[in-house]
């Protein structure tokens, strides 16, 4: 396996594995958030705001993987 192929493979694996965790995390986050909204619709606005904060923080993990993949392809 030459270096180019290893880079591409590494990028793909980084993105795929890196998306796993945040995917599960986002699912749990959104599920809990909607559950809370269903239980207490009167504080839906607050829950939604906090949900977006949580989404931003969780999603960042997947995006780090994305950046690592980019670095592997274009920089490394």
């Amino acid at each position: 396996m030459d270096a180019e192929a290893a880079k591409l493979l590494g990028a793909g694996i980084a993105m795929g594995v890196g998306a796993l965790g945040p995917g599960i995390g986002l699912g749990m986050l959104l599920g809990k958030a909607y559950e809370s909204i269903a239980r207490q619709p009167e504080v839906a606005g607050d829950i939604r705001t906090n949900m977006f904060i949580g989404i931003g923080v969780t999603e960042a993990v997947a995006l780090y993987a994305f950046v690592v993949a980019l670095i592997l392809i274009f920089v490394a």
Binding site: G56, V57, E59, A60, L63, Y64, F66, V67, L70
Partner: peptide
């Protein structure tokens, strides 16, 4: 870093 990378990576992706 995360604030910058989140926005950048989202729009780039």
């Amino acid at each position: 870093v995360s604030l910058a990378v989140r926005l950048f990576a989202n729009m780039l992706a």
